[in-house]
Amino acid sequence: MAHDSHDSHEYVPEIAVDRDGNQHEVQGWQGDTYGGKLGFWLFMLTEVMMFGSMFMVLSYYFHLHPQDFLDASAGLNRVLGGTNTVVLLVSALTMGLGLLKMRNGDVKGAKLMIWATILLALVFLGVKAVEWTAEYHHGIFLGLDALQSGNEHSLPFGQILFFGMYFSMTGLHGVHIIIGIGLMLWLLKRINSGKVTPEHNILHFNIALYWDLVHLIWVFVFPYFYMIGAGDIAGGVIHGH
């Protein structure tokens, strides 16, 4: 069965001939690099729609409860959030450099860069864990009294909604980070088994795109949650101390 040979070198495109005898190369689904790229971009648009919808929910309630949102935002830990921003920023660079090395034939360097990206992703998750733990001990976590209605610890509506969305959105972003780590490990496996090479790097290219998208989402998640209320207490860190 022809399609089981993964080596797309063997695939010879068909030629269609028009009535004047001119030859036209037929694009097959095999070895269609641009098609792979287009398909992955389309997939990323679905992520844009998903996170876009969540930002819409967030904006809806921001509009209904502006002051509550600013108050809640002021309470987040900007040092940890900012650290993660920088971590993710650098990881986007390592991922990009890895792809660059792969394309230029430096497979070893590429693998090193992917490992660096995985490491930074783990750092990101670690910081996130520290942050959520601190918030938990501070009494703010899904299911705790502060985020329930009608008890003495209840926060105002706007703050409940802010934190509800904060845990949902950063949580889903974290899930994307974990999926990203999984994808990178898979990529390393494919590189080791020679399925991804400097000539056929579409998988590497697409996973790099995915990682940039994860970064891109954070570019909006970070200011919307951590920074909008920063003006109230300049540079302040309320909890975690």
């Binding site: 921003t85 200011p223 920074m227």
Partner: peptide, 9 residues
Amino acid sequence: TAITFVQPS
């Protein structure tokens, strides 16, 4: 990113 941090104050 640095501007992001200093802008609110």
